[in-house]
Design a binder for these strands. Structure first.
Lengths: 108, 108
DNA sequence: ACAATGATCAAGTTTTAACTTGACTATTTC
DNA sequence: GAAATAGTCAAGTTAAAACTTGATCATTGT
């Protein structure tokens, strides 16, 4: 619902449990309980993580009967990629100037 | 140095001040004071943010005299891109299965 | 019908991250 | 060599995430 800014996506992926959820959802969709199974935390907590992943548009869910099924969705990842590409292209325009200041070959 | 895992990079970029710092460093290298100038916080706080960006290998710094110059560096961004690409490619192998469960065209 | 399952809500606690203060060091500049 | 500038350190506070507990609800299986 809320707009999936880069802020939301980075915040969502900053947590290791949520990154692991994304990891596991990469292979197959899962119910909330199935998603929760490996973690040593309450189902409520998992639901809270899920809400954050949904707000970041990394995950979509759909409730059928009493089961909510969770799957990855594209938009959050697209935002991430867009953010990266934007910075990569701006960086390339300024190589020269940075080179003058830091003659470190790791310089972005 | 600490290894720049995806965890560190996402955590670093989860904070809006740090994202803004990256934003500003995209155009030109800056001293710590210059970097701190726009923010309504102590120089110490800025130094702490900087340390996090360095640990994530998004920024490199170099002290010459009493001035520390900060510039973007490649590795953190490469890790981010690698993480994204890895998930994109694994996702493509499972389109079919997800399609069965959620017939939502937003499905990742 | 009733028990079990899957999930959700409101309201608290705990843990972690962000930020502050005050003192201190090293380099310049006057 | 004194004063201003640039940055750093240790230790504390504040604010924000992460997580819990104890209900509650709707759906499904017996």
């Amino acid at each position: 619902m809320t707009e999936p800014t880069a802020a939301r996506v980075f915040q969502a992926l900053a947590d290791s449990t949520r990154r692991d959820m994304v990891e596991r959802l990469t292979d197959h969709a899962l119910s909330v309980s199935a998603l929760a199974a490996p973690y040593d935390m309450s189902l409520t907590a998992v639901g809270q993580h899920l809400a954050i992943l949904e707000a970041a548009e990394l995950v979509v869910t759909q409730k059928t009967g009493r089961v909510r099924t969770c799957a990855l969705t594209r938009s959050g990842f697209d935002i991430l990629e867009g953010w990266l590409k934007a910075r990569r292209s701006r960086w390339e325009q300024h190589l020269d100037r940075l080179g003058e200041i830091l003659d470190d070959d790791h310089t972005f």
